[in-house]
């Protein structure tokens, strides 16, 4: 008999950990899956994972804090990342960054209050010859310009083909 949402998530995560044979070598794979499903790894989730793998909760927290793609607070459904690779044209990139902030009304490192969009900087993503580069949930947009920001965001909301499905990254 499930009583709360939290219990349900706890059971789901336990099941997930069991599917990896409770092997602590699979910790990151488990965290990736939790991040994908719930868009963050909550404190409760970390404790459930720690308990099931028989490791210390602080150890799980430590691993989560190390990797950029894992977060302890919910990220937006659409994670928009702008590459700050040095090979890109700095002027054009700055314009894209400002337009993203203007359109979404948040700064880099923040998530919109409706939980839809997160705006992040990322390091070089291997598109140095085709910058500026924006990635939305892992889908890459090369030679991106400020005037394409509006269309990109509309596509996110309208489920267009410029973006990958939410929850995928």
């Amino acid at each position: 008999m499930l009583t709360t949402e939290r219990d349900r998530i706890g059971l789901e995560i336990e099941k997930l950990v069991r599917s990896y044979h409770n092997d602590c070598g699979a910790l990151i794979a488990i965290l990736q899956e939790v991040q994908r499903r719930y868009r963050h790894v909550s404190q409760y989730a970390m404790q459930v994972i720690a308990d099931a793998l028989d490791v210390h909760p602080a150890q799980v927290f430590s691993v989560v804090s190390y990797y950029r793609f894992l977060s302890t607070t919910p990220r937006g459904r659409f994670v928009i990342q702008l590459s700050d690779c040095i090979a890109h044209d700095a002027v054009e990139r700055a314009a894209v960054a400002r337009q993203l902030e203007n359109d979404l009304g948040i700064r880099f490192g923040e998530t919109t209050v409706d939980g839809l969009f997160s705006l992040e900087h990322t390091g070089c993503i291997g598109m140095c010859d085709q910058g500026p580069v924006v990635s939305v949930n892992g889908r890459i947009h090369t030679q991106f310009t400020a005037d394409r920001v509006g269309a990109l965001l509309r596509d996110c909301l309208g489920g267009g083909d410029m973006v990958a499905a939410p929850g995928r990254d």
């Binding site: 690779c85 390091g123 598109m127």
Partner: peptide, 11 residues
């Protein structure tokens, strides 16, 4: 892991 800024040959 190719994360070196300016490297994309492995990709």
């Amino acid at each position: 892991a190719e994360g070196e800024p300016g490297s994309f040959k492995d990709r």
